[in-house]
Nucleic acid binder design. Structure first.
Lengths: 178, 178
DNA sequence: ATAACTGCAAATTCTTTGCACTTTG
DNA sequence: CAAAGTGCAAAGAATTTGCAGTTAT
């Protein structure tokens, strides 16, 4: 995003905070700015802290979490769960995003044509009486490369899914057999 | 689910573990059985522990987590993030589920006609080269009741979403103004 | 018999909170 | 100036891990 749009976006975000009666603090501005500059990536709280501290080293982790919570409650920030044991965050440049990530290697991509997918998904929720909020959808899958590497041993079509995925096994879970 | 199907399902799950070279321990059987009996609910680790301990009080929380990790890595268990600060778990009775939950009151429903939605979503991922794994999708929204109660103050159509949702604000995030 | 698995309790990691101080409006 | 917001450090909660003992194959 070019400088000018970033600056406009910051103004929009800060304007919303103001219109809601929240104060425009320097910390909030820095955090919003950081999220906008890193748009497209998915920062976790620690990464966001580190970047924000480049602007103002005195910012603390508590402010990060409090700001995340505030922005999320206002619909200005999406929480992203890539099954890592912690959350990541992104500001929605569009109303919705669709991620697919590989449960084997962790690669993450955005789906194309998010506008029309958004319309579809909104329709689904609508029929249950829900208005969807802006957010990012996560879908776990296996990328072509991992499939070709034989991460899978079996075809994939059981009603109770019978799959062997040697996922990013960050943790001990018994031996990894075979 | 009727007793016989549960028993068959347990056998299927245990059979998969066995075929992968994992051992069929009593603890694993109990955990799988508990998940199957509570199918449709979304247990967190603590709840799963409590239920499992009704069968065998000696089961520890570490075994719960290790079994969750194992089942998930085999594609036999879905992780469910309802933005509560921890995860919930369910075994997929079908390949995929679609939840919509209300970010204001927390109400959670399953979408209807999950089969066809699954086909659609699989197609989306396919075009990026991904095979989706069985899983549960979470969508955050606002239910009709909460909308009518005026949780929202503004219409919902900004490119950078401009929404005021007084979400389940479990945490301090400044005052709740207005 | 032996490698896999478990329970326990301690350790880690992520997130939240109380409080005294600072800043915004 | 008063209320809102912040930083710090301590607390809390969820999850992971080392290890000695147990169990499945």
């Amino acid at each position: 995003m070019q400088e000018q749009r970033i600056s406009e976006s910051i103004d929009q975000y800060m304007g919303l905070l103001k219109s809601r009666g929240f104060r425009l603090t320097n910390q909030r501005r820095i955090i919003v700015e950081t999220l906008l500059r890193k748009l497209g990536t998915h920062l976790n709280a620690r990464e966001l802290l580190d970047l924000a501290q480049e602007e103002d080293p005195s910012i603390g982790i508590a402010t990060i979490y409090r700001t995340i919570e505030l922005l999320n409650s206002l619909g200005m920030l999406n929480m992203v769960n890539l099954e890592e044991g912690f959350l990541r965050f992104e500001v929605p440049d569009e109303q919705m995003h669709f991620h697919v990530f590989c449960r084997s290697c962790g690669k993450t991509v955005h789906l194309a044509d998010e506008e029309s997918k958004m319309a579809e998904v909104k329709g689904w929720a609508q029929s249950e009486g829900f208005d969807l909020l802006p957010q990012t959808f996560e879908m776990a899958g296996l990328c072509r490369e991992c499939r070709e590497e034989g991460v899978l041993d079996e075809p994939f079509d059981a009603a109770i899914p019978i799959k062997g995925v040697r996922g990013r096994c960050r943790r001990r879970c018994g031996r990894m057999p075979r």
